[in-house]
């Protein structure tokens, strides 16, 4: 489409071509709008009091949000959710970037290593949870090793890693699964950009750290941003790890929502829906802010 054709009225053939063009979007658009959009709209409607099948129809009301946001535990849960999501995304980013930087080097066994590090990517989170249980629990391997070396003589004396608030168990599972993901994204970009710019910088006398922060980082930044966005969003909405490894009440928000859904009081399902919508809003706001900061940063970089 050149600008010239836009100003003139479209010919019949062009119009047909256009329709044909957009016809190709119909399937993907239909699926996403009906399923994804439909789900979102239903969630919002229900959280606003629309559930005639429970005999509840007070639409539109903010009562469910008010009840939810009015309780102190909601904010504790939100803090807990954000804590797990942020800390694990950040750690996975650091570990993943370091790993990617090591992977571009040549070393013996690299082919094998490239298989090995991707393993967590290929298997479900539930496997990671099982590994956390067997390693990190008070009756787990690390606790047994501590007992073997005489550091402790009762499982209760071992560090509380699982089944506790702000514990490292959930974070360990996320990091285990997401470090390879971020490594892959960063490593792929590193391969793509080659080493010429770094070499040029080195010839101009830049140090190792300067090269990384001034030359390499800006180039891998888009990969970092998009992969951390995905990880962060996943971590906010993740259910199974906090459910199995978390410390119980107050739970992270997805677990809170699930408990509302499973309460024998069916009207609490609407509060569960309000919880779910709250998760969406919070994650939306944070991700948009993140993207906005990144765009501003990029623009500034571009101007420089």
């Amino acid at each position: 489409m050149t600008p010239a054709t836009k100003t003139h009225p479209l010919t019949r053939r062009e119009r047909r071509a256009r329709i044909l063009l957009f016809a190709q979007f119909v399937p993907i658009f239909a699926v996403l709008v009906i399923l994804f959009g439909g789900a979102l709209v239903m969630a919002v409607l229900q959280s606003l009091g629309f559930a005639p099948w429970f005999g509840v129809n007070t639409f539109p009301t903010l009562d469910y949000f008010a009840a939810l946001w009015g309780s102190a535990t909601f904010w504790t849960s939100l803090g807990l959710t954000l804590y797990y999501a942020t800390v694990s995304t950040f750690l996975a980013l650091v570990l993943g970037t370091l790993l990617a930087l090591a992977l571009v080097k040549t070393f013996r066994g690299k082919t094998f290593y490239k298989y090995l590090y991707k393993l967590p990517l290929m298997i479900p989170y539930t496997v990671g949870i099982a590994l956390a249980v067997i390693m990190l629990g008070n009756g787990g391997m690390l606790s047994r090793l501590a007992a073997f070396f005489g550091v402790i003589d009762d499982p209760g004396q071992f560090l509380q890693i699982l089944k506790t608030h702000y514990g490292w168990g959930i974070i360990a599972v996320y990091i285990w699964k997401q470090t390879p993901f971020i490594t892959l994204a960063v490593y792929a970009v590193l391969l793509g950009i080659g080493r010429e710019t770094e070499e040029a910088a080195a010839i101009l006398g830049a140090g190792r750290r300067t090269i990384f922060f001034r030359v390499t980082l800006p180039q891998i930044l888009p990969g970092i941003v998009s992969s951390t966005l995905i990880c962060f969003a996943f971590n906010i909405g993740a259910f199974e790890a906090p459910f199995i490894l978390g410390g119980g009440f107050p739970d992270t928000l997805p677990v809170v929502a699930w408990r509302y859904f499973n309460d024998s009081d069916y009207t609490l399902q609407l509060r569960g829906m309000a919880t779910v919508v709250s998760i969406g809003i919070v994650s939306g706001v944070i991700l948009f802010a993140y993207l906005a900061v990144y765009r501003t940063f990029e623009r500034r970089m571009g101007r420089n």
């Binding site: 789900a39 229900q46 995905i230 829906m273 969406g280």
Partner: peptide
């Protein structure tokens, strides 16, 4: 968008 909307939200609504 589906990548950045929490799965729990989609699942329960669906």
């Amino acid at each position: 968008l589906p990548l950045i909307v929490p799965e729990a939200a989609i699942g329960m609504a669906l």
